[in-house]
Design a protein around this nucleic acid. Structure first.
Lengths: 297, 297
DNA sequence: CGTCCTTATGCTACAACTGAGCAAAAGGGG
DNA sequence: CCCCTTTTGCTCAGTTGTAGCATAAGGACG
């Protein structure tokens, strides 16, 4: 069974921690994700992604996993456009070409590390959208679940659902029925080229889910790090605070790290430096960095 | 950025329960998964999948989610082949065209419901493969983890890893370096067309993982069912037995089902019939059918 | 030098969940 | 009426998860 001819490109969500802030690798203005056509010379999709990211940003990639495949029917002149997206993790290092864009400049509502709740006006706009429909009850419930309102707990990994809901409600800049331009400011965040922000949301959702059952955070960390730095990293990704003592307990009991004999100055009591036990990647029994959540309030 | 021209097809892993046995929808001999080229008329990848499955098997699909995108570089004559695979769940109903193939005819080693361990000869063949390498320790550990040997627990959702390991070890029929034809019988299972068995393994892995955190089993159940039937379904998917009382406890406390006023004859005490509370699909707080595992021995 | 600040680290209490087993209920068949 | 089957209710102990208290170890500053 041979398929019809289509155009195919790979699209990369490359995440790193830059000055303790989670960032994604972007090019140009408005920011877009690194991407490139799938060429006959590429041995695999993954290799194609590595090649394009390297060529466009001069950066070597480490961890890389497939994310999702999007099909675009809009542009029919050149045929269908197929985008195979990948999620990559790396350490910041030297920036090369292109820049790092802070996640939370793109999805401001996803950062809850300071205990901030959803902005009042955004909450009102969401419920207004819900009420503008015949089945407003259904919509209100969806809003409440997706955004952790009405007594429900905030679920960090619902990034995509939140973005899609905001899109439907016309509250993000790229929404087609963004009737009132003013509303686009309610969900504060830079827009990106095309549907790249959606792709990015898919990546963040996957990453937030993944850190809880696989030790992937370490791909973002330097060779040696303190437990506080590791915790900061997890909190940055999850957009949520974590109970310090419990976090350490989980890390230790899972034997994810091993001590070094070095200490780091931290402003308070010096912290021990640790390094990741690479062996656990082979030990598939290891659960991951199941980030200890704060109980819902 | 416009992509290069490639051939694209969609590929469907359609799962149902047939007489209490988990089965996948296949066509022809050797069995292959329903598939079809991506055509300009298709609105989306998902819709393309629905259309092709319906055309080839006369069967309407319910639940459908994207699985993985495979790229094949082998056939260079017609250009690259891109396969976007989907996982679908349905009730058996009338078979239409094509047939249902039992999972465990394709992956015999994945069925542990009767407490069977890995066949001795297969275990020996795996370790023999491990020992035939310079880093035999690493390989032996990988075998042990993947197949739950040497005191490690069997992890149902490692379907793909197990298949890939068997493939590497030349113990499945389609392996290229299947030097000794006799060995191919050690991992008993029908082969499929091309890499379809690998795609299927990907689907089973996803499904086994998913039943533990999303209430998807119900897509396979009839409108009304007893808790025992539901448990049988979960056990069939997981390839593992489940503690009945705990299973019921989880189902009830998560409020996944509601009673009907009907009973079913079962050979013993009549069982109450339940129906799925469709509302929970909207309530994202629900964890799923987190199948209560049997503690590792 | 002692006090106060900061951050790091150790430990405990309590609640919730999980795996496992006992036992009674409710049908049918000899 | 006894025995078989399957369903259903319940208990118990061990584990895990959340939260908070307390101490350790540095620097800054009087």
């Amino acid at each position: 069974m041979t398929g019809a001819q289509v155009n195919a490109e790979v699209l990369a969500v490359i995440v790193a921690l830059v000055d303790g802030r989670p960032a994604v690798l972007t090019l140009g203005e408005p920011p877009r994700l690194p991407s490139g056509p799938l060429l006959p010379g590429h041995r695999s999709l993954q290799q194609a992604t590595r090649a394009w990211v390297e060529e466009q940003t001069g950066r070597r990639l480490g961890y890389l996993e497939q994310l999702y495949t999007f099909a675009d029917v809009d542009r029919t002149d050149t045929g269908r456009e197929l985008s195979i997206s990948y999620l990559g993790l790396t350490t910041a290092g030297d920036p090369g070409i292109g820049g790092w864009t802070d996640w939370y400049d793109l999805f401001a509502w996803e950062d809850r590390r300071n205990g901030e709740l959803l902005p009042q006006d955004l909450e009102r706009a969401l419920y207004a959208w819900a009420d503008a429909s015949p089945d407003s009850d259904e919509r209100r419930r969806r809003v409440a679940i997706t955004f952790g309102l009405a007594g429900r707990s905030w679920q960090p990994d619902l990034v995509l659902q939140r973005y899609e809901l905001l899109y439907e409600a016309g509250l993000v800049a790229e929404a087609p029925d963004n009737r009132r331009a003013a509303d686009a400011d309610l969900a504060p965040g830079l827009r990106m080229l095309g549907d790249h922000r959606r792709v990015l949301a898919t990546g963040l959702a996957r990453l937030r889910a993944k850190i809880s059952y696989r030790p992937v955070v370490f791909e973002l960390m330097p060779e040696q790090f303190t437990l506080r730095q590791l915790q900061d990293c997890v909190e940055a990704l999850a957009g949520q605070q974590v109970h310090t003592q419990n976090f350490r307990r989980v890390i230790e009991q899972q034997e994810l790290v091993e001590e070094t004999d070095q200490l780091a100055e931290t402003g308070g009591r010096p912290a021990r430096l640790y390094r990741f036990r690479r062996q656990v990647l082979a030990e598939r029994s290891i659960a991951g960095t199941k980030l200890p959540t704060t109980r819902a309030r």
